[in-house]
């Protein structure tokens, strides 16, 4: 009997929230994890230190995944330090909420670039090595906003819905090569992003959640971890909704 295979993982936006929980979970399973971050070096160092302390292997890699040159550099750095990327978790995301009447084109473009363009750029950058290996896992973090829509988040909802379409298209393109492509769509999860919503919005949301509480980042990470595992070998093109029954 052999132990689980140690694979190389890149988690974009891995220094905080769902990204960090995913990085920690996958490192805990013996994978080597690259934690990408764009601006918060302290948080990234913190995430790497936590993984180290738990006996795992992780590195921090700075770079804006919405930019092509940065993505190429990030992938090269990970490859040099850890090896070819076998599991990609597209998690990096931002919000620039506004009513559509007031939404500036920059707020639209920023959200689409960081949340959707990054998914395309990173998936493209790891594809060569995944094709060669005839094995790969791409898991992107969408959102219930992309499934049902959120008022005041037309840009975010569009980007997150875009991830779901991208996931289906790419899944069909590379399925014959042993590469699966899936998404998770978290609902209201207790992270910095939802903390910014304020208490009124949060308690109104909780009333609509079947399980009666916000989710934790780890509860999303476990779904990502499942899709990244060999156990999920027959699942592709899917979006797993992790929302505590918000939609019921």
């Amino acid at each position: 009997m052999t132990g689980p295979i140690s694979r190389v993982v890149l988690v974009t936006g891995g220094s905080r929230g769902i990204g960090r929980a995913t990085a920690e979970l996958l490192a805990g399973r013996g994978h080597k994890v690259a934690v990408n971050y764009v601006s918060n070096a302290t948080a990234a160092a913190d995430a790497v230190a936590a993984i180290d302390a738990a006996g795992g292997t992780a590195i921090a890699v700075q770079g804006d995944v919405g930019e092509e040159a940065a993505v190429e550099r990030i992938v090269d750095e990970v490859q040099d330090q850890l090896g070819q990327i076998e599991i990609l978790v597209n998690n990096a995301g931002i919000t620039r909420d506004d009513l559509i009447m007031r939404m500036k084109p920059e707020a639209w473009d920023d959200v689409l670039q960081t949340n959707l363009r990054s998914v395309y750029l990173c998936s493209r950058a790891v594809m060569r090595s995944m094709l060669r290996a005839r094995w790969g896992r791409i898991i992107s973090v969408s959102s219930v906003a992309g499934v049902y829509g959120n008022a005041g988040q037309a840009n975010y909802s569009a980007a997150k819905a875009g991830i779901i379409g991208f996931t289906k298209g790419l899944a069909k393109e590379v399925g014959s090569r042993g590469i699966t492509v899936n998404a998770v769509a978290p609902g209201f999860i207790a992270t910095d992003m939802t903390a910014a919503l304020g208490e009124d919005t949060t308690s109104a949301a909780v009333e609509r959640i079947t399980l009666g509480r916000l989710g934790t980042a780890r509860e999303v990470a476990t779904a990502v971890g499942y899709l990244a595992s060999d156990d999920a070998s027959y699942i592709t093109g899917q979006t797993v909704v992790v929302d505590g029954g918000l939609a019921l």
């Binding site: 094709l131 014959s176 090569r177």
Partner: peptide
């Protein structure tokens, strides 16, 4: 050979 196969061959 599908289009992806041609890409793989070139690689």
């Amino acid at each position: 050979v599908d289009s992806l196969g041609v890409v793989e061959l070139l690689m």
